[in-house]
Design a protein around this nucleic acid. Sequence first.
DNA 1: ACGACTCATAAGTTTGTGCTTATGTGTTAC
DNA 2: GTAACACATAAGCACAAACTTATGAGTCGT
Lengths: 104, 104
Amino acid sequence: MSDTDIFKVLADPTRRAVLERLASAEMTATALREGFAISQPAMSQHLAVLRGAGLISERRDGRFVNYKVESQGLAPLRQWLARYEAFWPARIDALKDLLKEMDQ
Amino acid sequence: MSDTDIFKVLADPTRRAVLERLASAEMTATALREGFAISQPAMSQHLAVLRGAGLISERRDGRFVNYKVESQGLAPLRQWLARYEAFWPARIDALKDLLKEMDQ
DNA sequence: ACGACTCATAAGTTTGTGCTTATGTGTTAC
DNA sequence: GTAACACATAAGCACAAACTTATGAGTCGT
């Protein structure tokens, strides 16, 4: 799963809302639909996308499917942020200040 | 700038690459184009998008325009992550464990 | 003043994304 | 066994996104 894919998946507000809702409790697709003005297939497609990105996982229970957050799903996003911020100008500026102090 | 917009902006690999390149040094649009198989207008459009999202800022210098990273641009992304992770099952599980320990 | 240069904007095209309706697959209840 | 239910998949459509070429708006060198 590439960084691009992670960002694309999270760029959809419905999918982020689903993810946030699942963060607090495991839920079925139908339960998740509550409050969304969206058809059942649309929700199913969003869940497939989230699953494909490794952000959620499913557990079949008879005719129900329970979805839950995959705890390491956002790791690529956090890693991208961390890697990016390692090269931040702010950090570099801080380093410059430090070097200046050491010079005195 | 909504969370959705931030994610959409970062979902493009060229824009992320530009941002990463700018993180290490201020640069002109032409210099940024080096190594990208992309037309000048395309780069200009990407820069406009990044600027619109508050991720970069520009400084005109004659006929050149120098772009640099806006250090607080990724704040919404970090905030989203932080807010999301506050509700993580992992955290909740950890809390449960803690409460269980306190109960003993 | 004019040609070369840097960058932005306009217009048009193609591809991707998210939705819908319709239908398929498997499960439970009676 | 059959009807209702939960969910997935297929097909088609509308809109958005990213690219292209063409052109516009400023700036510099001579």
